[in-house]
Design a protein around this nucleic acid. Sequence first.
DNA 1: TCCATCGCTTGATCTGGGTCAAGGAGCTTA
DNA 2: TAAGCTCCTTGACCCAGATCAAGCGATGGA
Lengths: 254, 254
Amino acid sequence: MDGKVAISEKIAQSAHVDCGDCPIRHRAVCARCEADELELLEQIKYYRNFEAGQTVIWSGDQMDFVASVVSGIATLTQTMEDGRTQMVGLLLPSDFVGRPGRERASYDVVATTDMVMCCFRRKPFEQMMVRTPHIAQRLLEMTLDELDAAREWMLVLGRKTAREKIASLIAIIARRDAALSMQGTRGPLVLDLPLTREAMADYLGLTLETVSRQVSALRKDGVISLEGKRRVTIPDMGRLLEEAGDDSDGGMLV
Amino acid sequence: MDGKVAISEKIAQSAHVDCGDCPIRHRAVCARCEADELELLEQIKYYRNFEAGQTVIWSGDQMDFVASVVSGIATLTQTMEDGRTQMVGLLLPSDFVGRPGRERASYDVVATTDMVMCCFRRKPFEQMMVRTPHIAQRLLEMTLDELDAAREWMLVLGRKTAREKIASLIAIIARRDAALSMQGTRGPLVLDLPLTREAMADYLGLTLETVSRQVSALRKDGVISLEGKRRVTIPDMGRLLEEAGDDSDGGMLV
DNA sequence: TCCATCGCTTGATCTGGGTCAAGGAGCTTA
DNA sequence: TAAGCTCCTTGACCCAGATCAAGCGATGGA
Protein backbone atom coordinates (compact mmCIF):
# COMPACT_ATOMS: atom_id res chain seq x y z
CA MET A 1 0.00 0.00 0.00
CA ASP A 2 2.82 2.33 0.87
CA GLY A 3 4.34 1.59 -2.49
CA LYS A 4 1.17 2.56 -4.30
CA VAL A 5 0.88 5.87 -2.50
CA ALA A 6 4.47 6.67 -3.30
CA ILE A 7 3.85 5.97 -6.98
CA SER A 8 0.74 8.07 -7.30
CA GLU A 9 2.56 10.89 -5.55
CA LYS A 10 5.48 10.54 -7.90
CA ILE A 11 3.10 10.64 -10.84
CA ALA A 12 1.33 13.69 -9.47
CA GLN A 13 4.71 15.40 -9.26
CA SER A 14 5.45 14.38 -12.82
CA ALA A 15 8.48 12.55 -11.53
CA HIS A 16 9.69 9.69 -13.62
CA VAL A 17 7.82 6.48 -12.87
CA ASP A 18 8.92 3.09 -14.02
CA CYS A 19 6.47 1.69 -16.61
CA GLY A 20 6.39 -1.57 -14.67
CA ASP A 21 4.82 0.30 -11.76
CA CYS A 22 2.33 2.24 -13.84
CA PRO A 23 -1.32 1.90 -12.77
CA ILE A 24 -2.52 1.64 -16.37
CA ARG A 25 0.21 -0.70 -17.50
CA HIS A 26 -2.16 -3.48 -18.45
CA ARG A 27 -4.99 -1.53 -20.07
CA ALA A 28 -3.35 1.32 -21.96
CA VAL A 29 -1.93 1.40 -25.46
CA CYS A 30 1.28 -0.15 -24.09
CA ALA A 31 -0.55 -3.14 -22.59
CA ARG A 32 0.81 -5.69 -25.05
CA CYS A 33 4.39 -4.45 -25.04
CA GLU A 34 7.26 -6.73 -24.03
CA ALA A 35 9.98 -5.58 -21.66
CA ASP A 36 12.27 -4.40 -24.46
CA GLU A 37 9.48 -2.47 -26.14
CA LEU A 38 8.56 -0.85 -22.85
CA GLU A 39 12.10 0.32 -22.47
CA LEU A 40 11.89 2.17 -25.78
CA LEU A 41 8.62 3.80 -24.75
CA GLU A 42 10.14 4.67 -21.40
CA GLN A 43 12.76 6.73 -23.19
CA ILE A 44 10.34 8.93 -25.08
CA LYS A 45 7.55 9.33 -22.54
CA TYR A 46 6.98 12.33 -20.29
CA TYR A 47 4.23 13.19 -17.82
CA ARG A 48 1.99 16.25 -17.90
CA ASN A 49 -0.45 17.44 -15.25
CA PHE A 50 -3.69 19.29 -15.82
CA GLU A 51 -6.00 20.92 -13.32
CA ALA A 52 -9.74 20.41 -13.21
CA GLY A 53 -11.34 22.71 -15.76
CA GLN A 54 -8.19 23.19 -17.77
CA THR A 55 -8.30 22.71 -21.53
CA VAL A 56 -5.80 20.11 -22.67
CA ILE A 57 -6.16 20.79 -26.40
CA TRP A 58 -8.34 23.05 -28.52
CA SER A 59 -9.97 21.64 -31.63
CA GLY A 60 -7.90 22.67 -34.64
CA ASP A 61 -4.69 23.14 -32.68
CA GLN A 62 -1.43 21.63 -33.75
CA MET A 63 -1.23 18.27 -32.02
CA ASP A 64 2.39 17.26 -31.68
CA PHE A 65 1.90 14.61 -29.04
CA VAL A 66 -0.32 11.65 -28.29
CA ALA A 67 -1.02 10.47 -24.75
CA SER A 68 -2.62 8.03 -22.35
CA VAL A 69 -4.76 9.17 -19.46
CA VAL A 70 -3.00 7.93 -16.30
CA SER A 71 -5.43 9.33 -13.73
CA GLY A 72 -8.40 11.69 -13.75
CA ILE A 73 -11.12 12.25 -16.31
CA ALA A 74 -11.35 14.34 -19.45
CA THR A 75 -14.06 15.01 -22.00
CA LEU A 76 -13.94 15.15 -25.78
CA THR A 77 -16.38 17.75 -27.14
CA GLN A 78 -17.46 19.30 -30.40
CA THR A 79 -18.86 22.82 -30.55
CA MET A 80 -20.91 24.52 -33.25
CA GLU A 81 -20.39 28.17 -34.16
CA ASP A 82 -23.46 29.23 -32.21
CA GLY A 83 -22.24 27.52 -29.07
CA ARG A 84 -24.22 24.29 -29.08
CA THR A 85 -21.90 21.59 -27.79
CA GLN A 86 -21.96 17.81 -27.87
CA MET A 87 -19.66 15.56 -25.91
CA VAL A 88 -18.37 12.78 -28.16
CA GLY A 89 -16.15 10.93 -25.72
CA LEU A 90 -15.35 10.50 -22.07
CA LEU A 91 -11.67 9.80 -21.42
CA LEU A 92 -10.93 7.61 -18.42
CA PRO A 93 -7.65 6.24 -17.10
CA SER A 94 -5.91 4.14 -19.77
CA ASP A 95 -7.79 5.83 -22.63
CA PHE A 96 -5.75 7.15 -25.53
CA VAL A 97 -5.78 10.73 -26.83
CA GLY A 98 -4.74 11.79 -30.28
CA ARG A 99 -4.43 10.03 -33.58
CA PRO A 100 -1.22 8.83 -35.17
CA GLY A 101 -0.78 10.49 -38.53
CA ARG A 102 -3.02 13.42 -37.74
CA GLU A 103 -1.57 16.91 -37.52
CA ARG A 104 -4.39 18.75 -35.82
CA ALA A 105 -6.84 17.96 -33.05
CA SER A 106 -10.42 17.36 -34.18
CA TYR A 107 -12.05 17.96 -30.79
CA ASP A 108 -11.66 19.99 -27.64
CA VAL A 109 -10.18 17.98 -24.80
CA VAL A 110 -10.98 19.34 -21.34
CA ALA A 111 -9.93 17.97 -17.95
CA THR A 112 -12.97 17.61 -15.69
CA THR A 113 -10.86 16.55 -12.72
CA ASP A 114 -7.18 16.95 -11.96
CA MET A 115 -5.38 14.72 -14.41
CA VAL A 116 -2.07 13.16 -15.24
CA MET A 117 -1.23 12.17 -18.80
CA CYS A 118 1.59 10.04 -20.11
CA CYS A 119 2.66 11.78 -23.33
CA PHE A 120 4.74 10.84 -26.35
CA ARG A 121 5.87 13.21 -29.06
CA ARG A 122 3.91 12.22 -32.12
CA LYS A 123 6.68 11.59 -34.62
CA PRO A 124 8.78 9.26 -32.46
CA PHE A 125 5.60 7.46 -31.44
CA GLU A 126 4.59 6.97 -35.06
CA GLN A 127 8.03 5.60 -35.86
CA MET A 128 7.76 3.20 -32.96
CA MET A 129 4.36 2.03 -34.12
CA VAL A 130 5.81 0.90 -37.41
CA ARG A 131 8.49 -1.12 -35.67
CA THR A 132 6.48 -2.57 -32.79
CA PRO A 133 3.25 -4.17 -33.97
CA HIS A 134 2.17 -4.71 -30.37
CA ILE A 135 1.36 -1.04 -30.03
CA ALA A 136 -0.65 -0.92 -33.23
CA GLN A 137 -2.44 -4.13 -32.28
CA ARG A 138 -3.52 -2.74 -28.95
CA LEU A 139 -4.50 0.59 -30.46
CA LEU A 140 -6.69 -1.20 -33.00
CA GLU A 141 -8.41 -3.12 -30.23
CA MET A 142 -8.99 0.06 -28.21
CA THR A 143 -10.28 1.94 -31.25
CA LEU A 144 -12.74 -0.84 -32.08
CA ASP A 145 -14.02 -0.72 -28.51
CA GLU A 146 -14.45 3.04 -28.74
CA LEU A 147 -16.31 2.66 -32.01
CA ASP A 148 -18.71 0.22 -30.35
CA ALA A 149 -19.22 2.67 -27.49
CA ALA A 150 -19.86 5.50 -29.94
CA ARG A 151 -22.48 3.42 -31.75
CA GLU A 152 -24.16 2.58 -28.47
CA TRP A 153 -24.35 6.33 -27.83
CA MET A 154 -25.85 6.95 -31.25
CA LEU A 155 -28.82 4.83 -30.18
CA VAL A 156 -29.07 6.74 -26.91
CA LEU A 157 -28.89 10.12 -28.64
CA GLY A 158 -31.18 9.29 -31.51
CA ARG A 159 -33.93 7.21 -29.99
CA LYS A 160 -34.10 7.31 -26.22
CA THR A 161 -36.27 9.59 -24.07
CA ALA A 162 -34.74 11.97 -21.56
CA ARG A 163 -35.50 9.59 -18.71
CA GLU A 164 -33.95 6.65 -20.56
CA LYS A 165 -30.90 8.75 -21.40
CA ILE A 166 -30.23 9.56 -17.75
CA ALA A 167 -30.76 5.95 -16.72
CA SER A 168 -28.41 4.82 -19.50
CA LEU A 169 -25.66 7.20 -18.40
CA ILE A 170 -25.89 6.12 -14.77
CA ALA A 171 -25.90 2.48 -15.82
CA ILE A 172 -22.78 2.92 -17.92
CA ILE A 173 -20.89 4.67 -15.16
CA ALA A 174 -22.04 2.02 -12.69
CA ARG A 175 -20.86 -0.76 -14.97
CA ARG A 176 -17.45 0.81 -15.39
CA ASP A 177 -17.07 1.41 -11.65
CA ALA A 178 -18.08 -2.14 -10.91
CA ALA A 179 -15.54 -3.43 -13.41
CA LEU A 180 -12.77 -1.49 -11.69
CA SER A 181 -13.62 -1.71 -8.01
CA MET A 182 -14.83 -5.30 -8.15
CA GLN A 183 -17.47 -4.82 -5.49
CA GLY A 184 -19.85 -7.77 -5.55
CA THR A 185 -22.35 -7.55 -8.39
CA ARG A 186 -25.17 -8.27 -5.90
CA GLY A 187 -26.54 -5.70 -3.49
CA PRO A 188 -26.83 -1.95 -3.97
CA LEU A 189 -24.18 -0.17 -6.00
CA VAL A 190 -22.79 3.19 -4.92
CA LEU A 191 -21.01 5.54 -7.30
CA ASP A 192 -19.99 9.15 -7.79
CA LEU A 193 -21.05 10.97 -10.91
CA PRO A 194 -17.86 12.38 -12.40
CA LEU A 195 -19.79 15.00 -14.37
CA THR A 196 -21.72 18.18 -13.62
CA ARG A 197 -25.36 18.36 -14.69
CA GLU A 198 -24.25 20.51 -17.60
CA ALA A 199 -21.65 17.97 -18.73
CA MET A 200 -24.27 15.22 -18.47
CA ALA A 201 -26.54 17.35 -20.63
CA ASP A 202 -23.77 17.79 -23.21
CA TYR A 203 -23.23 14.06 -23.23
CA LEU A 204 -26.90 13.22 -23.66
CA GLY A 205 -28.04 15.94 -26.03
CA LEU A 206 -30.28 17.53 -23.39
CA THR A 207 -30.42 20.78 -21.43
CA LEU A 208 -29.15 20.90 -17.88
CA GLU A 209 -32.66 21.65 -16.62
CA THR A 210 -34.00 18.46 -18.17
CA VAL A 211 -31.13 16.47 -16.68
CA SER A 212 -31.91 17.90 -13.26
CA ARG A 213 -35.61 17.14 -13.59
CA GLN A 214 -35.09 13.56 -14.74
CA VAL A 215 -32.54 12.82 -12.02
CA SER A 216 -35.10 14.09 -9.52
CA ALA A 217 -37.81 11.96 -11.12
CA LEU A 218 -35.71 8.78 -10.95
CA ARG A 219 -35.03 9.58 -7.30
CA LYS A 220 -38.73 10.12 -6.53
CA ASP A 221 -39.58 6.84 -8.22
CA GLY A 222 -37.00 4.97 -6.15
CA VAL A 223 -34.85 3.91 -9.10
CA ILE A 224 -31.85 5.65 -7.52
CA SER A 225 -31.20 7.53 -4.31
CA LEU A 226 -28.94 10.54 -3.86
CA GLU A 227 -26.54 11.60 -1.15
CA GLY A 228 -25.58 15.16 -1.95
CA LYS A 229 -25.73 15.96 -5.65
CA ARG A 230 -23.15 13.57 -6.99
CA ARG A 231 -23.26 10.34 -4.97
CA VAL A 232 -25.76 7.86 -6.35
CA THR A 233 -26.99 4.58 -4.87
CA ILE A 234 -28.61 2.02 -7.12
CA PRO A 235 -30.72 -0.38 -5.06
CA ASP A 236 -31.66 -2.54 -8.04
CA MET A 237 -29.52 -2.61 -11.16
CA GLY A 238 -32.11 -4.60 -13.10
CA ARG A 239 -34.69 -1.90 -12.48
CA LEU A 240 -32.26 0.78 -13.67
CA LEU A 241 -31.51 -1.13 -16.87
CA GLU A 242 -35.24 -1.48 -17.47
CA GLU A 243 -35.58 2.28 -17.15
CA ALA A 244 -32.70 2.68 -19.58
CA GLY A 245 -34.62 0.66 -22.16
CA ASP A 246 -31.77 -1.85 -22.39
CA ASP A 247 -32.28 -5.50 -23.12
CA SER A 248 -32.67 -7.50 -19.97
CA ASP A 249 -29.45 -9.39 -20.67
CA GLY A 250 -27.55 -6.32 -19.53
CA GLY A 251 -27.69 -7.52 -15.94
CA MET A 252 -24.20 -8.91 -16.17
CA LEU A 253 -21.66 -6.27 -15.36
CA VAL A 254 -19.13 -6.83 -18.10
CA MET B 1 -14.26 -0.08 -70.80
CA ASP B 2 -15.07 -3.57 -72.02
CA GLY B 3 -12.70 -4.92 -69.43
CA LYS B 4 -14.48 -3.14 -66.64
CA VAL B 5 -17.88 -4.42 -67.65
CA ALA B 6 -16.55 -7.93 -67.81
CA ILE B 7 -15.18 -7.62 -64.29
CA SER B 8 -18.35 -6.27 -62.71
CA GLU B 9 -20.28 -9.06 -64.44
CA LYS B 10 -17.84 -11.61 -63.16
CA ILE B 11 -18.24 -10.21 -59.65
CA ALA B 12 -22.01 -10.22 -59.92
CA GLN B 13 -21.80 -13.89 -60.82
CA SER B 14 -19.54 -14.51 -57.87
CA ALA B 15 -16.94 -15.76 -60.30
CA HIS B 16 -13.38 -15.51 -59.19
CA VAL B 17 -11.90 -12.10 -59.85
CA ASP B 18 -8.24 -11.32 -59.68
CA CYS B 19 -7.51 -8.98 -56.74
CA GLY B 20 -5.46 -6.83 -59.05
CA ASP B 21 -8.62 -6.06 -61.05
CA CYS B 22 -10.80 -5.44 -58.00
CA PRO B 23 -12.63 -2.09 -57.98
CA ILE B 24 -11.92 -1.54 -54.27
CA ARG B 25 -8.32 -2.71 -54.42
CA HIS B 26 -6.93 0.64 -53.27
CA ARG B 27 -9.42 1.59 -50.57
CA ALA B 28 -10.38 -1.63 -48.80
CA VAL B 29 -8.71 -3.42 -45.93
CA CYS B 30 -6.27 -4.95 -48.44
CA ALA B 31 -5.18 -1.58 -49.81
CA ARG B 32 -1.68 -1.69 -48.33
CA CYS B 33 -0.95 -5.29 -49.21
CA GLU B 34 1.99 -6.24 -51.41
CA ALA B 35 1.68 -8.71 -54.26
CA ASP B 36 2.68 -11.68 -52.12
CA GLU B 37 0.24 -10.74 -49.38
CA LEU B 38 -2.54 -10.33 -51.93
CA GLU B 39 -1.87 -13.81 -53.15
CA LEU B 40 -2.49 -15.20 -49.68
CA LEU B 41 -5.74 -13.25 -49.39
CA GLU B 42 -6.72 -14.42 -52.85
CA GLN B 43 -6.59 -18.00 -51.61
CA ILE B 44 -9.01 -17.52 -48.74
CA LYS B 45 -11.47 -15.03 -50.21
CA TYR B 46 -14.87 -15.84 -51.65
CA TYR B 47 -17.66 -13.64 -53.01
CA ARG B 48 -21.22 -13.52 -51.76
CA ASN B 49 -24.19 -11.73 -53.32
CA PHE B 50 -27.12 -10.20 -51.52
CA GLU B 51 -30.34 -8.79 -52.89
CA ALA B 52 -31.78 -5.42 -51.95
CA GLY B 53 -33.68 -5.77 -48.70
CA GLN B 54 -31.93 -8.98 -47.68
CA THR B 55 -30.47 -9.22 -44.19
CA VAL B 56 -26.77 -10.04 -44.30
CA ILE B 57 -26.40 -10.71 -40.57
CA TRP B 58 -28.68 -10.53 -37.55
CA SER B 59 -27.40 -8.93 -34.38
CA GLY B 60 -26.32 -11.66 -31.98
CA ASP B 61 -25.72 -14.23 -34.72
CA GLN B 62 -22.58 -16.24 -34.95
CA MET B 63 -20.23 -14.29 -37.20
CA ASP B 64 -17.75 -16.64 -38.76
CA PHE B 65 -16.61 -14.37 -41.53
CA VAL B 66 -15.48 -10.81 -42.08
CA ALA B 67 -15.90 -9.00 -45.38
CA SER B 68 -15.42 -5.96 -47.55
CA VAL B 69 -18.26 -4.34 -49.46
CA VAL B 70 -17.34 -4.59 -53.14
CA SER B 71 -20.43 -2.95 -54.60
CA GLY B 72 -23.81 -1.81 -53.30
CA ILE B 73 -24.83 -0.32 -49.99
CA ALA B 74 -25.72 -1.80 -46.62
CA THR B 75 -26.81 -0.36 -43.29
CA LEU B 76 -25.75 -1.16 -39.75
CA THR B 77 -28.66 -0.79 -37.34
CA GLN B 78 -29.49 -1.30 -33.70
CA THR B 79 -33.02 -2.08 -32.55
CA MET B 80 -34.61 -1.78 -29.11
CA GLU B 81 -37.10 -4.34 -27.82
CA ASP B 82 -40.04 -2.07 -28.57
CA GLY B 83 -38.96 -1.62 -32.17
CA ARG B 84 -37.26 1.76 -32.08
CA THR B 85 -34.31 1.54 -34.45
CA GLN B 86 -31.22 3.63 -34.97
CA MET B 87 -28.84 3.31 -37.87
CA VAL B 88 -25.27 3.40 -36.61
CA GLY B 89 -23.38 2.99 -39.84
CA LEU B 90 -23.71 3.16 -43.59
CA LEU B 91 -21.56 0.63 -45.42
CA LEU B 92 -20.30 1.71 -48.81
CA PRO B 93 -17.98 0.00 -51.28
CA SER B 94 -14.60 -0.71 -49.64
CA ASP B 95 -16.04 -0.57 -46.11
CA PHE B 96 -15.26 -3.43 -43.78
CA VAL B 97 -17.82 -5.59 -41.96
CA GLY B 98 -17.15 -7.57 -38.82
CA ARG B 99 -14.57 -7.41 -36.12
CA PRO B 100 -11.56 -9.65 -35.80
CA GLY B 101 -11.69 -11.45 -32.48
CA ARG B 102 -15.42 -11.12 -32.08
CA GLU B 103 -17.66 -14.19 -32.16
CA ARG B 104 -21.05 -12.60 -32.58
CA ALA B 105 -22.42 -9.69 -34.59
CA SER B 106 -23.35 -6.60 -32.57
CA TYR B 107 -25.64 -5.06 -35.15
CA ASP B 108 -28.05 -5.97 -37.89
CA VAL B 109 -26.54 -5.61 -41.34
CA VAL B 110 -29.08 -5.15 -44.13
CA ALA B 111 -28.45 -4.69 -47.84
CA THR B 112 -30.31 -1.63 -49.14
CA THR B 113 -29.31 -2.30 -52.74
CA ASP B 114 -28.06 -5.41 -54.47
CA MET B 115 -24.60 -6.07 -53.10
CA VAL B 116 -21.47 -8.07 -53.55
CA MET B 117 -19.19 -8.78 -50.62
CA CYS B 118 -15.67 -10.15 -50.59
CA CYS B 119 -15.60 -12.49 -47.59
CA PHE B 120 -12.91 -14.20 -45.55
CA ARG B 121 -13.50 -16.87 -42.95
CA ARG B 122 -12.73 -15.21 -39.64
CA LYS B 123 -10.09 -17.55 -38.24
CA PRO B 124 -7.82 -17.63 -41.29
CA PHE B 125 -8.20 -13.87 -41.59
CA GLU B 126 -7.19 -13.36 -37.96
CA GLN B 127 -4.17 -15.56 -38.47
CA MET B 128 -3.20 -13.56 -41.53
CA MET B 129 -3.53 -10.32 -39.59
CA VAL B 130 -0.92 -11.43 -37.12
CA ARG B 131 1.53 -12.22 -39.89
CA THR B 132 0.85 -9.33 -42.25
CA PRO B 133 0.95 -5.98 -40.44
CA HIS B 134 -0.21 -4.21 -43.61
CA ILE B 135 -3.72 -5.51 -43.05
CA ALA B 136 -3.84 -4.46 -39.40
CA GLN B 137 -2.37 -1.06 -40.31
CA ARG B 138 -5.03 -0.40 -42.88
CA LEU B 139 -7.80 -1.66 -40.61
CA LEU B 140 -6.64 0.68 -37.86
CA GLU B 141 -6.73 3.60 -40.27
CA MET B 142 -10.22 2.67 -41.46
CA THR B 143 -11.48 2.19 -37.91
CA LEU B 144 -10.16 5.59 -36.84
CA ASP B 145 -11.95 7.16 -39.80
CA GLU B 146 -15.17 5.42 -38.83
CA LEU B 147 -14.79 6.61 -35.27
CA ASP B 148 -14.45 10.19 -36.51
CA ALA B 149 -17.55 9.74 -38.63
CA ALA B 150 -19.46 8.30 -35.67
CA ARG B 151 -18.50 11.30 -33.54
CA GLU B 152 -19.61 13.66 -36.26
CA TRP B 153 -22.95 11.87 -36.20
CA MET B 154 -23.19 12.20 -32.43
CA LEU B 155 -23.20 15.98 -32.89
CA VAL B 156 -25.85 15.68 -35.57
CA LEU B 157 -28.05 13.41 -33.45
CA GLY B 158 -27.61 15.28 -30.20
CA ARG B 159 -27.69 18.92 -31.16
CA LYS B 160 -28.99 19.61 -34.64
CA THR B 161 -32.54 20.52 -35.65
CA ALA B 162 -34.50 18.36 -38.08
CA ARG B 163 -33.74 20.75 -40.93
CA GLU B 164 -30.03 20.77 -40.12
CA LYS B 165 -30.02 16.99 -39.89
CA ILE B 166 -31.45 16.60 -43.38
CA ALA B 167 -29.05 19.16 -44.79
CA SER B 168 -26.15 17.38 -43.05
CA LEU B 169 -27.11 14.02 -44.50
CA ILE B 170 -27.41 15.38 -48.03
CA ALA B 171 -24.09 17.20 -47.64
CA ILE B 172 -22.31 14.05 -46.54
CA ILE B 173 -23.67 12.00 -49.40
CA ALA B 174 -22.78 14.78 -51.81
CA ARG B 175 -19.24 14.95 -50.47
CA ARG B 176 -18.77 11.22 -50.85
CA ASP B 177 -20.18 11.20 -54.38
CA ALA B 178 -17.96 14.09 -55.35
CA ALA B 179 -14.93 12.29 -53.95
CA LEU B 180 -15.70 9.25 -56.09
CA SER B 181 -17.02 10.67 -59.31
CA MET B 182 -14.62 13.60 -59.42
CA GLN B 183 -17.07 15.94 -61.06
CA GLY B 184 -15.79 19.50 -60.79
CA THR B 185 -16.31 20.97 -57.32
CA ARG B 186 -17.83 24.08 -58.95
CA GLY B 187 -21.29 24.20 -60.36
CA PRO B 188 -24.40 22.33 -59.25
CA LEU B 189 -23.98 18.83 -57.84
CA VAL B 190 -26.40 16.05 -58.69
CA LEU B 191 -26.78 12.92 -56.62
CA ASP B 192 -29.10 10.03 -55.87
CA LEU B 193 -30.18 9.39 -52.31
CA PRO B 194 -29.36 5.76 -51.64
CA LEU B 195 -31.87 5.61 -48.77
CA THR B 196 -35.64 5.58 -48.41
CA ARG B 197 -37.25 8.29 -46.26
CA GLU B 198 -37.60 5.74 -43.51
CA ALA B 199 -33.92 4.80 -43.62
CA MET B 200 -33.01 8.49 -43.55
CA ALA B 201 -35.22 8.85 -40.48
CA ASP B 202 -33.47 5.91 -38.81
CA TYR B 203 -30.14 7.49 -39.56
CA LEU B 204 -31.12 10.89 -38.22
CA GLY B 205 -33.19 9.97 -35.19
CA LEU B 206 -36.37 11.38 -36.74
CA THR B 207 -39.70 10.05 -38.01
CA LEU B 208 -40.21 9.51 -41.71
CA GLU B 209 -42.90 12.22 -41.73
CA THR B 210 -40.48 14.80 -40.42
CA VAL B 211 -37.89 13.76 -42.99
CA SER B 212 -40.44 14.17 -45.76
CA ARG B 213 -41.52 17.58 -44.48
CA GLN B 214 -37.98 18.91 -44.14
CA VAL B 215 -36.94 17.66 -47.56
CA SER B 216 -39.96 19.49 -48.97
CA ALA B 217 -39.06 22.61 -47.00
CA LEU B 218 -35.48 22.64 -48.30
CA ARG B 219 -36.87 22.25 -51.81
CA LYS B 220 -39.34 25.11 -51.37
CA ASP B 221 -36.55 27.32 -50.05
CA GLY B 222 -34.37 26.54 -53.05
CA VAL B 223 -31.59 24.87 -51.10
CA ILE B 224 -32.05 21.74 -53.19
CA SER B 225 -34.22 20.70 -56.09
CA LEU B 226 -35.73 17.29 -56.69
CA GLU B 227 -36.25 15.18 -59.75
CA GLY B 228 -38.47 12.32 -58.71
CA LYS B 229 -38.11 11.39 -55.07
CA ARG B 230 -34.52 10.35 -54.96
CA ARG B 231 -32.51 12.53 -57.35
CA VAL B 232 -31.27 15.71 -55.72
CA THR B 233 -29.60 18.74 -57.28
CA ILE B 234 -27.60 21.10 -55.10
CA PRO B 235 -27.24 24.48 -56.81
CA ASP B 236 -25.04 25.94 -54.07
CA MET B 237 -23.02 23.70 -51.79
CA GLY B 238 -22.08 26.60 -49.50
CA ARG B 239 -25.74 27.34 -48.89
CA LEU B 240 -26.42 23.70 -48.06
CA LEU B 241 -23.54 23.60 -45.57
CA GLU B 242 -24.87 26.77 -43.97
CA GLU B 243 -28.23 25.06 -43.55
CA ALA B 244 -26.44 22.06 -42.05
CA GLY B 245 -24.94 24.33 -39.40
CA ASP B 246 -21.44 23.31 -40.45
CA ASP B 247 -18.45 25.58 -40.20
CA SER B 248 -17.92 27.51 -43.38
CA ASP B 249 -14.58 25.78 -43.99
CA GLY B 250 -16.51 22.73 -45.09
CA GLY B 251 -16.70 24.06 -48.65
CA MET B 252 -13.75 21.96 -49.70
CA LEU B 253 -14.94 18.56 -50.81
CA VAL B 254 -12.46 16.32 -49.08
C1' DT C 1 -57.89 -3.81 -66.03
C1' DC C 2 -58.10 -3.90 -61.49
C1' DC C 3 -56.44 -4.23 -57.08
C1' DA C 4 -52.72 -4.27 -53.60
C1' DT C 5 -48.60 -2.66 -51.98
C1' DC C 6 -44.79 0.43 -51.25
C1' DG C 7 -42.78 4.76 -50.72
C1' DC C 8 -43.95 9.19 -49.98
C1' DT C 9 -46.56 13.65 -48.89
C1' DT C 10 -49.46 16.61 -46.33
C1' DG C 11 -52.75 18.07 -42.68
C1' DA C 12 -54.39 18.27 -37.76
C1' DT C 13 -53.35 17.69 -33.19
C1' DC C 14 -50.61 16.52 -29.15
C1' DT C 15 -46.60 16.45 -26.05
C1' DG C 16 -41.71 15.90 -24.40
C1' DG C 17 -38.32 18.61 -23.68
C1' DG C 18 -36.56 23.38 -24.51
C1' DT C 19 -36.61 28.19 -22.82
C1' DC C 20 -37.01 31.72 -19.52
C1' DA C 21 -37.00 32.95 -14.86
C1' DA C 22 -36.47 32.75 -9.88
C1' DG C 23 -34.26 31.04 -6.06
C1' DG C 24 -31.52 27.70 -2.93
C1' DA C 25 -27.30 25.15 -1.13
C1' DG C 26 -22.55 24.97 -0.55
C1' DC C 27 -18.16 26.86 -1.52
C1' DT C 28 -14.47 30.54 -1.37
C1' DT C 29 -12.71 35.26 -0.68
C1' DA C 30 -12.76 39.50 2.03
C1' DT D 1 -20.92 37.81 8.12
C1' DA D 2 -21.46 38.98 4.26
C1' DA D 3 -20.95 38.88 -0.51
C1' DG D 4 -20.27 36.52 -4.63
C1' DC D 5 -19.25 32.53 -6.80
C1' DT D 6 -20.72 27.84 -9.08
C1' DC D 7 -23.83 24.20 -9.38
C1' DC D 8 -28.29 22.75 -9.02
C1' DT D 9 -33.54 22.72 -8.58
C1' DT D 10 -38.15 23.92 -9.68
C1' DG D 11 -42.04 26.37 -11.91
C1' DA D 12 -44.53 28.37 -16.00
C1' DC D 13 -44.91 28.50 -20.66
C1' DC D 14 -43.98 27.36 -25.52
C1' DC D 15 -42.69 25.07 -29.70
C1' DA D 16 -40.29 21.53 -32.72
C1' DG D 17 -41.12 17.35 -33.88
C1' DA D 18 -44.00 13.10 -32.82
C1' DT D 19 -48.33 10.94 -33.62
C1' DC D 20 -52.49 9.95 -35.97
C1' DA D 21 -54.82 10.02 -40.22
C1' DA D 22 -55.89 10.51 -45.11
C1' DG D 23 -54.57 10.19 -49.65
C1' DC D 24 -51.45 10.09 -53.96
C1' DG D 25 -48.64 8.00 -57.67
C1' DA D 26 -45.88 4.28 -59.34
C1' DT D 27 -45.11 -0.56 -59.71
C1' DG D 28 -46.41 -5.22 -60.19
C1' DG D 29 -49.10 -9.39 -59.92
C1' DA D 30 -53.61 -11.70 -61.13
